[in-house]
Amino acid sequence: MKIKSSKTTALLFILIISLLSACGSNSSADNTGNNYPEKDIDGIIMWGEGGATDIIGRTLAPIVEKEIGSSLVMQNRAGAAGAIATQYVYDQAADGYTLLFGAENPNLYQVLDISERSYQEDFVPVSVIANSFAGIIVKEDSPYQTLEDLVNHAAENPNDLIFGTTGEGGLPNVVLAMLHNEFGTEFRTVPYDGEGPVTTALLGGEIDATTVTISAAQDYVESGDFRMLAVINDEEIEALPDVPAITDIYPEIDKYLPWGPFQAVFAHKDTPEDVLAKLTESFEVAIDTSDFRTTLENLGMEYLNISGQEAIDYIEQNRSTSAWMLYEAGETDISPEEFGIPQPE
């Protein structure tokens, strides 16, 4: 009967514990308006540890914390090309306490039938932090000296060359669609798990060509391991002045631009306006600090720091290009029109 006598003691201890934990956590604070933020903010990263999104989120967090006056707790919820994290943030209360750190991928969820979520309908951008550019690369011993060589060969000898991709909706996927639509190229594609593995495959000679972000290829181009045939932009990039812009070779690509990977922070669509304003302001100041700008530079990303309507337009342009290109190349059967995605002019 020891147990019975212990019950009161047990209850007492539980009481103490619960009091302690109530003091410890800030959950008791009420979330009304202007006093935002009154508790920790969760930052959900849609990619795993070590990726560009992760690095940007985790370096930006301590700077934003200083600005906003509350802790920004970063968590990774990788999976399904970011769809898991996107859904999670969407399911949380629209109070500005859960932010989504994401890249361009959700722009293609609908046409690729990955998830119902989209940046346009379900989220509002706090800030588009930075963008980057994609480049088409081959190994240094490749017979293709220029983009024209590669494109011509692939158009004349369908399925002869292997192009490494990063799965559906990844950069190489969209670039392939772009080349296919404009020049009728046909590549055999082998998908890899991300930019790292696809770079490795090119180094090992498993594939003939691929597309990656400039930052992932820059060092190999400088060391002479890779040759970058073109950068997907309408002018040369400062970091790689010798690489021609794709519009210099094929001016018809211009209509798809600007297009490229970006990194952004989002809040739930129904976040109160004053909360959103506070967030936008804090992020704007934090991204503008010289420390963070150096980080961006090191990562090979271009400083953007846009918010509001400007950010919405930027993301919409990216979505419209990618979605329509994939649809026209026959990569997906779902028309972007079904989701009201306007065709790029």
Partner: peptide, 23 residues
């Protein structure tokens, strides 16, 4: 090139501190 998930984070650390992990 990262050999596993942990070394992928090392790459991130090198980037953040201004180095270009590469050849």
């Amino acid at each position: 090139i990262p050999g596993d998930a942990v070394t992928a984070i090392f790459i991130g650390a090198l980037f953040i501190h201004g180095l270009q992990p590469g050849p």
